[in-house]
Simulated scan of single mutants.
Amino acid sequence: MNLGPLQWVRATAVLLAVLLLAGCFTKRKNEGARLYAQRCASCHGENGEGLRRLIPPLAGSDYLGQHRSSLPCQLRKGLAGEITVNGVKYNQLMPGNESLTDSEITNLLNYVQTSWGNKEEVWTIKEVADELKYCGGARGL
């Protein structure tokens, strides 16, 4: 197959774009799991099991579906006060993660929403950014 100069440039540009995009997605592929291990697992457990009646579980948690719209703000700003998860009351302070970007919050939420038997709806970055506006937590991607 003989390509003319213009076709050669176009083919090369397409190939380069595909390779760059693949690298971009590969770097973020496991970001939610990495962020969870770094920022959440010490309290909620490696497998989202929580800690007895002190820290609520994320695995099999009814709270995730019932409070979907507040989850981005809870990750960014933290949570104080009593909550009920799977019929059990918890009242421990959860610190916020002000340094997380909107895309990191999205990846972290999607990891939790789809791990350990959870089958909750995944988030888009736009949905997370829109919810963060309600708590003054929008920071950008």
Results as ranks from 00 to 15, higher is better:
Q113K: 06
W116T: 15
K119F: 14
T124A: 05
W116C: 15
G117M: 08
I125W: 13
Y134R: 15
L132W: 02
W116K: 13
K133G: 03
V128Y: 04
V112S: 09
I125S: 09
Y111I: 08
C135F: 05
N118I: 14
E131A: 08
S115I: 04
W123V: 09
L109R: 06
L132R: 12
K119P: 00
L132A: 07
V122K: 14
L109P: 02
I125Q: 12
N107E: 08
V122L: 09
T106K: 05
V122Y: 09
A129S: 14
K133V: 06
E131R: 14
V122R: 12
G136T: 04
T114C: 12
Y134P: 00
T114W: 07
W116H: 12
V128A: 11
Q113N: 10
V128D: 07
I105G: 04
G117A: 11
C135H: 10
L132M: 06
E120P: 03
K126Q: 13
Y111D: 02
I125M: 10
E121G: 03
E131V: 05
L109H: 01
D130P: 00
G117T: 03
E127K: 11
Y111F: 13
W116D: 13
T124E: 15
K126M: 02
K119S: 10
N107G: 12
I105W: 00
S115L: 03
W123A: 06
E121W: 15
G117F: 05
L108F: 01
L132Q: 08
W116I: 08
E120Q: 14
V128M: 11
